[in-house]
């Protein structure tokens, strides 16, 4: 039995990697907004979902016209990033900024707003899809070469999976560069650390916050498109669970910490896939694959108990 389990391992790790990259990219949106506003933007799940829906729609209309799947995917990624990013910006402008302008200090208020926005976006997409296609359950239709595959040693690898990893890596490296090496990135970090002092430097925090939502939203959109390509079945509620898990990943890595969000996503992806595969065998069938979600949130609860600052989060000593 052990041999059988071990033989599966490379495949499980590869699948966990895919899931982990999706979580990591969504987690970045959570963590960036949290870093700047200390707001858990629950609507980010829906920004991700919108990306997934855009992905399906782009394939629906462009795949019959453009025969190359990679070209269609690139267009879907660009469109998904733009639409999700702009959506996130609009949400910030309409729902969060007015609360800030009123000087609301109760942190619960924007949190509840975020949950409300989440419902609004779900049903908005449902409405639009309902009017447009008479149904809100969407099926991704892939075209070559995306649907191809090969086997490397014992690991079954789909081309679309390779693209997911490649694009995720590019996005993560790009974001790291943007945040740590550019003027905008420095301004984002400055606003995150001390908004009032940032104003003394000539930074308008509202502009920086808006850009932060744009960037986080665009990443969520890209993650959504890749998710749709990878897992095919999409509906307006598809953001909820991945979003919640990505939030878990962000906390796991240390919320507000960008590298932490990536690490947290990858770790959570592995944990969940490993648990989903091995739990049934290890427990003699008592706990099925469906318990993988329990594992994900169990990790969150344990982490909050023993290391509330997350894996990479640190309590920075600040001298006054």
């Amino acid at each position: 039995m052990l041999e059988g389990l071990l033989a599966l391992l490379p495949q499980v790790i590869f699948d966990g990697l895919l899931l982990g990259f999706v979580y990591a990219m969504i987690a970045l949106g959570y963590t960036m907004v949290y870093g700047v506003l200390e707001l858990i933007n629950f609507a980010h799940s829906e920004i991700f979902m919108i990306g997934a829906v855009v992905g399906v729609e782009v394939f629906r209309y462009l795949a019959p016209v453009i025969p190359n799947g990679v070209v269609v995917l690139v267009l879907a990624l660009i469109l998904g990033a733009i639409i999700s990013g702009v959506m996130a910006m609009i949400v910030e402008r309409l729902a969060y900024r007015p609360l800030r302008a009123r000087g609301t200090t109760n942190r619960l208020v924007p949190l509840i707003t975020a949950i409300g926005v989440s419902f609004v976006l779900q049903d908005l997409v449902r409405l639009v899809e309902g009017i447009w296609h008479n149904e809100f359950k969407l099926q991704m239709r892939l075209i070559p070469p995306l649907d191809g595959n090969f086997t490397f040693l014992t690991v079954f690898i789909q081309y679309k999976a390779l693209i997911l990893i490649l694009v995720s890596l590019l996005m993560l490296v790009g974001l790291n560069y943007l945040v740590n090496r550019t003027k905008l990135g420095t301004a984002i970090r400055a606003v995150a650390q001390d908004m009032n002092t940032a104003r003394l430097m000539g930074i308008n925090p509202d502009v920086i916050i808006s850009r932060t939502f744009l960037i986080g939203g665009a990443l969520g959109g890209v993650a959504g498109v890749l998710f749709a390509v990878q897992y095919s079945t999409i509906d307006p509620y598809v953001g909820f669970l991945p979003g919640l898990k990505a939030f878990t990943a962000a906390v796991l890595g240390g919320i507000g910490n960008i590298t932490g969000a990536m690490v947290g996503g990858l770790v959570l992806g592995q944990m969940e896939t490993l648990a989903g595969t091995y739990l049934p065998t290890l427990t003699g069938g008592n706990f099925g694959t469906e318990y993988k979600d329990v594992i994900a949130f169990l990790i969150l609860i344990l982490l909050l108990l023993f290391r509330p600052q997350g894996l990479l989060g640190q309590v920075v000593k600040e001298k006054v």
């Binding site: 003027k183 420095t186 301004a187 970090r189 400055a190 650390q193 001390d194 009032n196 002092t197 940032a198 104003r199 003394l200 430097m201 000539g202 930074i203 308008n204 925090p205 920075v316 600040e318 006054v320």
Partner: peptide, 30 residues
């Protein structure tokens, strides 16, 4: 405030208000 700076008024605030997780160089650049 963010426009006052551009008019030529610099403010060294009470308690320094250094950005704690930016490097010295980044603090200057910002």
């Amino acid at each position: 405030a963010e426009q006052i700076v551009s008019m030529g008024i610099g403010h060294v605030p009470e308690g320094r208000r250094i950005f704690p997780r930016l490097t010295v160089e980044e603090n200057l650049e910002i």
